[in-house]
Design a protein around this nucleic acid. Structure first.
Length: 569
RNA sequence: CGGGAUGUAGCGCAGCCUGGUAGCGUACCUGCUUCGGGAGUAGGGGGUCGGAGGUUCAAAUCCUCUCAUCCCGACCA
């Protein structure tokens, strides 16, 4: 490709509305332009990169016998009503009506459509398993889109869906899929982790997330460098506490006045005790009313863990309205003693000797509280969020590290959630009708490209991992109107093209500086700079974008070495 | 959905407080010079000041409404 023909509107300055690096650089590098909040046009350079990601994904999906399909973006409401998600999905689902006033939605995901296809065509265990995938645009009407195409409303996504006769086969595909994902993200040049994850509203009971470590990530990832255990912080397990020592002294429970001391920190400094000697009582609301969760004062309660422990439909921090219906509850002074609510406690609580809690009386706390004697706990479990330096639950001396991660992929075992709701069944060997067991496996294509930029850039611009680079090589003549240089550049270009190396020839009349700036910005891995001085000595300059390392090579001999140079990048 | 901010030339911004015929940088067009890290110089084109209404002799500027975008939070995968 000749630069002069490429539609590549690069910018010197970052757009005012971009916050994270990948967003700024994608706009500056002429890859994307915003059309509306969370909706972007992908320009030629951007599309080249997305296609690279897609192609890597396709190869790996096909490798494990996935078959590509293309599904409708507009889906009829009936299917969503059948799966019960028409109501459940809420405002994220963009609903539209056709001219006959029939209801549709723009697909945020395709479980319904794919399940509908499979249930109509699959009748027997002999036809299973089936693995279908699609790479398409989806739309989720996010409350707050941000960070460019990292979290847009319209986004390109690969989703794969698998259908199985039994659990074992599902697990088998799940594992193959995890391996395929590992291959994909490695090929994309990403530093990532496969982490244990919650399955959220997609449903199902088993899931992993692929997270690219980056400060701009929106997920918190807890991991242990010693044993490799990694989990989304929503689920990251705490190490079970050592069994409690026998009670040293039997302290009596006492009421103390603590006027105005509502937070853990305030109470701790008021009573001059460490925060770990206080037990926090946090109220939540679910479909059955209020529940209470207890964690140590220096810990944070984990909503996802608590929700999974209770096994409720939904769980949210209690709102004032719900609390005010219980006259015995006084915000800031709530405690587990004498409240008529189910109380769930973190395991660590069971090892505390004597501690402070709210007394359910304004301006009053209890001291000297003991678990056995004073508390009625419905269940003890791990319901706190781990922190950096917490001990790892899976090895001897490991410690947690907590870092931000970008969720680029997520794989789930769905079980029969959709197949039972939508009556997707098959006949087994005994002729019995059974619900199909499903798995689903997503990758954010645009997000993967954005994540690659987050991890690979410098102050001059993007540094594409070789497999994502829109062009492998850019040829930069110091002056293309110089006939000698032109002949040489054209020759290098032709030869590289013949070898199948994607090459960009910067034939613009701009000065060298401008061309170099653009080459750096758009992140082409290898720059070939052709100038009169070097050429008169029979040499051209090869510059590696990543290292900024530059060397002279003999022309034209060096052309044959280019494939090897690229291999090492 | 709650809190905060912004909207002026393609892009980045000033002007608004204190109303009086819209400016800077960059990009763009033309000429000359220059040509190894976003050149210099001379000239030139481009703006319903997000939209609607109001106050006023006069509104980018003041008031009301509205739309859009961004940030923080809640939410979500």
């Amino acid at each position: 490709m000749h630069f002069s023909k490429l539609f590549l509107p690069t910018l010197k300055e970052s757009p005012a509305d971009a916050e994270v690096i990948s967003h700024k650089l994608m706009v500056r590098a002429g890859m994307i332009r915003q059309v509306a909040s969370g909706i972007y046009s992908i320009l030629p350079l951007g599309l080249r990169v997305l296609r690279k990601v897609e192609q890597i994904i396709r190869e790996e999906m096909n490798q494990i016998d996935g078959q590509e399909v293309f599904l409708p973006s507009i889906q009829p409401a009936e299917l969503w009503i059948e799966s019960k998600r028409w109501d459940f999905y809420g405002k994220e689902l963009l609903r539209i009506k056709d001219r006959h006033n029939r209801e549709f939605c723009y697909g945020p995901t395709h479980e319904e459509v794919i399940t509908d296809i499979v249930r109509k065509e699959v009748k027997s265990y002999r036809q299973l398993p089936i693995l279908l995938y699609q790479i398409q645009t989806k739309f989720r009407d996010e409350v707050r889109p941000r960070f460019g195409i990292m979290r847009g409303r319209e986004f390109m996504m690969k989703d794969a869906y698998s259908f199985h006769a039994d659990e074992e086969d599902t697990q088998y595909t799940y594992k193959k899929m995890a391996q395929a994902y590992t291959n994909i993200f490695k090929k994309c040049g990403l530093d990532f982790k496969q982490v244990q994850a919650d399955s959220g509203t997609i449903g199902g009971n088993f899931s992993h997330e692929f997270a690219v470590l980056a400060d701009s990530g929106e997920d918190d990832i807890g991991f242990c460098e010693s044993c490799g255990y990694a989990s989304n912080l929503e689920l990251a397990e705490s190490k079970p506490p050592a069994p409690p020592a026998p009670l040293a002294t039997s302290e009596d429970i006492k009421e103390v006045e603590t006027p105005g001391q509502k937070s853990v920190e305030a109470v701790a400094s008021f009573l001059n005790i460490p925060t770990r000697q206080i037990v926090k009582t946090i109220l939540f609301e679910n479909e059955n009313g209020l529940v209470a969760g207890l964690v140590r004062g220096d810990h944070e309660i984990n909503l996802v863990k608590l929700k999974n422990l209770i096994g409720c439909e939904w769980l949210e921090p209690a709102e004032e309205k719900a609390i005010s219906k219980h006259p015995e509850l006084h915000c800031g002074y709530i405690g587990p003693i004498g409240i008529d609510l189910p109380v769930y406690a973190d395991c660590e609580i069971s090892t505390l000797q004597s501690f402070v809690t709210g007394a359910n009386k304004p301006s009053t706390h209890f001291t000297g509280v003991q678990v056995e004697r004073d508390l009625k706990i419905k269940k003890f479990s791990d319901i706190r969020t781990v922190k950096t330096n917490d001990p790892c639950p899976h090895c001897e001396d490991g410690r947690y590290q907590v870092k931000r991660g970008i969720e680029v992929g997520h794989i789930f075992i769905l079980g029969t959630k959709y197949s039972s709701a939508m009556k997707a069944v098959y006949l087994d060997q005994e002729g019995k009708e059974k619900a199909l067991i499903m798995g689903c496996y997503g990758i954010g294509v645009g997000r993967t490209a954005a994540a690659a930029i987050e991890q690979n850039h410098d102050d001059r611009g993007i540094i594409w991992p070789i497999n994502l680079a829109p062009f492998k090589v850019v040829i930069i003549p110091v002056n293309y109107s110089n006939e000698d240089l032109k002949v040489v550049c054209d020759n290098i270009y032709d030869q590289l093209q013949k070898t199948g190396i994607e090459t960009l020839l910067d034939n613009r009349s701009d000065r060298l500086g401008a061309k170099l700036k653009d080459a750096d910005l758009i992140g082409i891995p290898l720059q070939i700079i052709v100038g009169a001085k070097n050429l008169s000595a029979g040499q051209v300059e090869l510059k590696i974008r990543k290292t900024n390392e530059s060397r002279l090579h003999p022309y034209p001999k060096f052309i044959n070495d280019i494939p090897n140079v690229l291999k090492e990048l």
